[in-house]
Amino acid sequence: MARKPAATAAKAAPSNTSKEELLKYYRDMLLIRRFEEKAGQLYGMGLIGGFCHLYIGQEAVVVGLEAAAKEGDKRITSYRDHGHMLACGMEARGVMAELTGREGGYSKGKGGSMHMFSREKHFYGGHGIVAAQVPLGAGLAFADKYLGNDNVTFTYFGDGAANQGQVYETYNMAELWDLPVIFVIENNQYAMGTSVKRSTKSTSLFGRGEAFGIPGEQVDGMDVLAVKAAGEKAVAHCRAGKGPYILEVMTYRYRGHSMSDPAKYRSREEVQKMRDERDAIEHVRELLLQGKHASEDDLKAIDKEIKDIVNDSAEFAKESPEPALEELWTDIYAADLPQGSAEENA
């Protein structure tokens, strides 16, 4: 990995980052982490089934990028999607209840961990087929350009997904048609058990855009402020009608690929080193304390607040009833255009 394990946490917050902003990042990242820890617990208790991919370690990526987004912008991602949903303002209750497959979930229990959506928050999933969301994301951007608004679409995918052919077909068309899409490669170094080095000799993933004329850059994904700054640059490029932009955000997943990962492909030390030296939440915590923006007690109060939200979501997810059996047969065909189609976007 190209990054130095230096203790960036020691750096003071850049003067343009306000206390409110830092507190928001802290809160949002912590919510994701605690939510995911709880999801892991519920999985262990058999309340969540199937595949469940946790986002722990990568929180700064979505939180930083959401800070660069405005109302109307869209987002789409893979199956590792809980963090993205929380970061764009979807309710913890609805996400957790989807994980338990209950009526109160965002997909009424029919989608599960990998397949959740919210028209209201412009969150387009939640996709289980590696890289399938990449052309879909460009399609969302196509619609915005077609309708003549200035929205952009954040299209997230992994380092493993970056080796799918459809990514490059999409790059070509996105640049050809100047689509307002930001391709966010969440490079957490591994695709299941395959490290980036074992899957490609072209390890500068953002650099692959060059062949299509798409600008891009690598970003430190354990530093939420760096992610936000890069996000703003990318957004400005897209909103100005200059076409797509690629952000390769260097990050790390602390947990296994999914809940059943023997994790023999990396050492415990590697994971521990990341947690100790580069943790994104710890980084903001130190910025808050050192900048005297918050006291230990203030942060404890936030921790408590977050814990309450997460516990409440877990309770809700346990108590929400299973979907009615008739739901098996609904939502296969639409009777009419779903709300929020073209007119609303225009």
């Binding site: 089934g49 497959g101 229990g109 979907p323 059996l325 739901e327 098996l328 296969i332």
Partner: peptide, 16 residues
């Protein structure tokens, strides 16, 4: 199997 995409919810999956 039923003529529906596979649902996630445990009770619905059983019926599908």
């Amino acid at each position: 199997g039923k003529d529906v995409p596979m649902p996630y919810a445990a009770n619905l999956e059983k019926h599908a």
